[in-house]
Design a protein around this nucleic acid. Structure first.
Lengths: 169, 169
DNA sequence: GTCTATATGGTGATAGAC
DNA sequence: GTCTATCACCATATAGAC
């Protein structure tokens, strides 16, 4: 693995654990490179955040594309927000937003595009734009709460609750 | 109005506008006091965040108590998350969490208590704990998105979508 | 490409006069 | 209670050797 990838991966892990992206020095140390080494690959903090977000968006695109094949976009979306194993990606993405000051204009734009893309996938499945928006927002709320550490209802019960509102019937 | 209140109010406004609580110096200047004056009232950044959150929690408790009287807790909850006029309180509360490092243990605990309290009020109204959790989380997601600035569906259509899932029938 | 060393600015926090 | 002055620290970022 290249150092760049290693840095990205380490930064993401730290961001998920701490709820925010730590200082570049801390990221560099944890990645096994020097501060200068890190800043060769990412010339600013904003660039690092951008990298984290881009990686997360790409991975989520893949996961949701696979879900479209399987026909379980809604479940996958909630799982990406909720599951202890799968929620890391989306959480990393949201964390890169809460980093005050260093959110790029380009990052905001690309994330907004991704959000629309994902909401459209959900809408294609459930056949109702309002339902799709609500499901997407529900996922955001779940991620938000996983940061603060509150308890959440099990995924199955949420899916059960959604059912009467997500059929095309 | 006391200086303490003025500082708190200004800090909340800045936090809402910027998506994060700015430096104590900036808050002091905007409040019309010196940095030392601010730190007489709030002896640390954590104390200021704590003050902002406490103020927001108290105001939301009042708003939801009034909603219980009127019997529209769900609508009020979503309005507190969504409405351009009313969403400031909750947004200020969530912003004080995303402040890395300086979130007190006491703040986390009191906020978790408030969250449970509010979710219980929703559950009392809709008669289903899963629905209540989903509605509360939906609100969190909405606030999260208002920070990033994405477009949201109108409140009425969300309430309409919720209807078949929130009756006691 | 990666490192060490350093510049520079801003931040939270303290001390003490008024 | 409020101010000025100052502190020590840590952050991002740069320069230049290897």
């Amino acid at each position: 693995m290249s150092n760049r990838e290693r840095i990205l991966q380490t930064a993401r892990r730290l961001a998920i654990e701490a709820g925010s992206v730590p200082s570049l020095g801390a990221v560099a140390t944890a990645s096994g490179v020097s501060k200068g080494g890190l800043m060769h690959h990412f010339r600013s903090r904003a660039a690092l955040l951008d990298g984290i977000a881009a990686q997360a968006i790409e991975a989520m695109d893949e996961a949701l594309a696979a879900a479209v094949e399987r026909g379980n976009v809604t479940e996958t979306w909630l799982r990406l927000s909720m599951s202890r194993e799968d929620a890391d990606l989306y959480r990393a993405l949201l964390v890169s937003f809460t980093d005050s000051g260093s959110t790029t204009e380009a990052l905001l734009r690309r994330s907004a595009e991704a959000t629309q893309r994902w909401e459209r996938l959900i809408a294609d499945e459930v056949g109702d734009p309002v339902a799709a928006a609500a499901i997407r927002l529900l996922g955001d709320g779940i991620v938000m709460n996983s940061v603060t550490g509150d308890r959440l209802p099990p995924l199955e019960s949420v899916l059960e609750w959604l059912k009467p509102r997500t059929g095309r019937n």
